[in-house]
Design a protein around this nucleic acid. Structure first.
Lengths: 148, 148
DNA sequence: TTCAAACCCGACCGATTCGGTCCGGTTTGC
DNA sequence: GCAAACCGGACCGAATCGGTCGGGTTTGAA
């Protein structure tokens, strides 16, 4: 019952872009280094974010990634769903599985409610808000390491 | 981002017990048949529920399982956490993993909030309430099958 | 006292997902 | 035309999921 590391990395990656200010472009390599995320993996994640329209890719030399929208208009929910796919708490909520919301299933309602609340909560937080109190991950990691 | 089938089965299994009335004992085999759950798998799940104190096992001939508490005092949250383990939305919330709630991590707060809400929502629903509108799963499945 | 019913524990298994890595291809700026 | 950067997808080892199975223990009843 967890989100994946990929979606977490996705958030960190986008926050890194957000901190650079409006319209800034950065390479995956650099973002990955600063956030302590394997660059090849982050590249894959950014491609998913690009497909979801959260980020724009600029190909060729001097290229990189830019936020497609201002960070106050990108929510945590959008990021995690772009990377992990839509949130379904129950196997049977996934339409590709067979459940079909059987009539008389008492579980559907509570889980649907929980799902709605979870998504609303994540949707309330924007990248702009998070960026305000988020330092680069690599710096935090070395700080934590030093503290031991 | 889902609960497992095992926790879903756990709820169905306990609801089956609840519908039998206070103090009733039933064998895994029978519950499994009525709820269309592989009995060996359900047995494993019931053992987890027994370890969590939600259910009491009676060994030997004529044995089976009984609810350890009245169904109005068993919540959905307890059942799913007994089977799936505690809910952690982020990898880093799991103390066995390495994260340690690094200072400056903007993600911790929103995810902690989401987790709290999710758990509260699941905790609001009791087996008694669910049982009131829950028919056995096998019956629902054959009904759904017939409808096609 | 013996037998069978029922749970207990843990090993195992195939399929899928996770977390990454890598490689060949394409686009672009210089 | 060359190098920089993204693109797509194949691949890989480890872990998890959804079960299954076999052998052991407890218990009631004949």
């Amino acid at each position: 019952m967890q989100f994946t590391r990929a979606s977490e990395y996705g958030v960190f990656g986008l926050l890194n872009l957000a901190r650079r200010g409006p319209g800034a472009t950065a390479m995956v390599e650099e973002v990955g280094r600063q956030e302590a995320i394997p660059p090849d993996f982050l590249a894959k994640i950014f491609r998913a974010l690009a497909r979801a329209g959260l980020v724009r890719s600029v190909r060729g030399a001097g290229g990189g990634f830019t936020l497609q929208r201002p960070p106050e208009r990108i929510t945590l929910l959008e990021v995690v769903e772009a990377v992990d796919g839509p949130i379904h708490l129950q196997p049977c909520f996934d339409p590709s599985a067979g459940c079909a919301f059987e009539a008389g299933c008492a579980l559907c309602e509570p889980f649907a409610e929980a799902r709605r609340l979870l998504r609303e909560t994540l949707a309330r937080h924007t990248l702009a808000e998070l960026a305000r109190r988020q330092s680069p991950r690599a710096a935090r990691l070395t700080a934590a390491h030093a503290a031991r």
